[in-house]
């Protein structure tokens, strides 16, 4: 069913890349190098600003207070810790993504640090990509730390909570880690959208729009329902477009399955990750179109 659009898309992409190869192939090496340098300095800047430390302390506090459900039965306790912990990871990840990504480029413009970089042999796309990658590295570090803490809490609780024969404390570690990784993809996709918005709008608007996109992206299945249930052609067309344009955040949300100890489809996760990477590339391409045309 999806093979025809895929084939069309694939042909278009390959054809375009082939036709324009003289433009982008020679730029690849140097472009990758400067992208990486910009990513690195973005990370270094965040480290100097002690963004990571502040967030980590906050999250440690939240996660360490996860063991106050001791009056519940073991399975419920596990559920509470897993769903609360994964949600904490996702929320902090997303809030951080919003505040890091929304300021990533506007801050450069406002401080005029961008001029010194863009007057060097750096393409604007490389600049956008480098800043985005830098933010992603920061977020990856933070979310990894949070996940490690959550796993630690689960292991400790598993050791201390006495199991009943009808209710067992199940740390469900594989799935918890899997869900955390998928949350990272959600954060990455959302961050790409935020970077896109920040190239065309003011910071305050970007932050507001980011929250909106986050909410809409989380209602992905509802929009899909609306598209399926549409009564007129226009409605169907509108909701379908909307569905494909908004970030597919629900694809990455496995918290529900994991905290209910349901079957988790890793296959769906891998597909979602692939789709997420494609979405990130698409959104960054659009962002670079806007950024390329931006008057600075």
């Amino acid at each position: 069913m999806g093979n025809l659009p895929f084939a069309i898309g694939f042909v278009v992409v390959v054809a375009l890349l082939a036709v324009t190869h003289r433009l982008w192939v020679p730029a690849l090496g140097h472009g990758a190098a400067s992208t990486w340098r910009i990513a690195k300095i973005t990370v270094a800047e965040a480290r100097r600003r002690r963004v990571v430390q502040a967030v980590v302390v906050l999250v440690l506090l939240v996660l360490l207070f996860m063991n106050f459900f001791s009056y519940l039965n073991p399975r419920e306790q596990a559920r509470m810790i897993i769903s609360g912990g994964l949600s904490a990871i996702t929320v902090f990840g997303i809030l951080l993504a919003i505040f890091v990504a929304a300021f990533l480029i506007p801050q450069e413009l406002e401080n005029r640090t961008v001029y010194a970089v863009l007057s060097k042999p750096v393409r604007r796309f490389e600049f956008v990509l480098g800043k985005y990658l830098g933010a992603m590295i920061i977020l990856a570090v933070i979310m990894t730390i949070m996940t490690v803490v959550l796993v630690g809490v689960l292991l400790v609780q598993d050791h201390f909570v006495p199991d009943f024969d009808h209710s067992v404390f199940e740390p469900n570690l594989d799935n918890v880690i899997f869900a955390a990784v998928m949350s990272y993809f959600a954060v990455a996709v959302l961050a790409a959208y935020i970077v896109l918005i920040s190239t065309v709008s003011s910071t305050a608007m970007t932050v507001i729009a980011s929250f909106l996109i986050w909410a809409i992206g989380s209602l992905q299945s509802q929009i899909h329902d609306l598209a399926e249930a549409a009564e007129t052609v226009f409605q169907k067309w509108f909701f379908t477009m909307f569905y494909w344009i908004m970030p597919p955040l629900e694809n990455f949300d496995f918290r529900h399955e994991v905290s209910n100890f349901m079957h988790v489809s890793y296959r769906a996760g891998i597909n979602a990750a692939g789709e997420g990477v494609l979405y990130i590339i698409i959104v960054l391409i659009v962002a670079s179109i806007f950024f390329n045309d931006r008057q600075m």
């Binding site: 999806g2 659009p5 895929f6 069309i8 694939f10 992409v13 494909w244 789709e275 494609l278 698409i282």
Partner: peptide
């Protein structure tokens, strides 16, 4: 093109 590739 890339968006179409996400369909399947």
């Amino acid at each position: 093109g890339l968006l179409l590739m996400t369909v399947p």
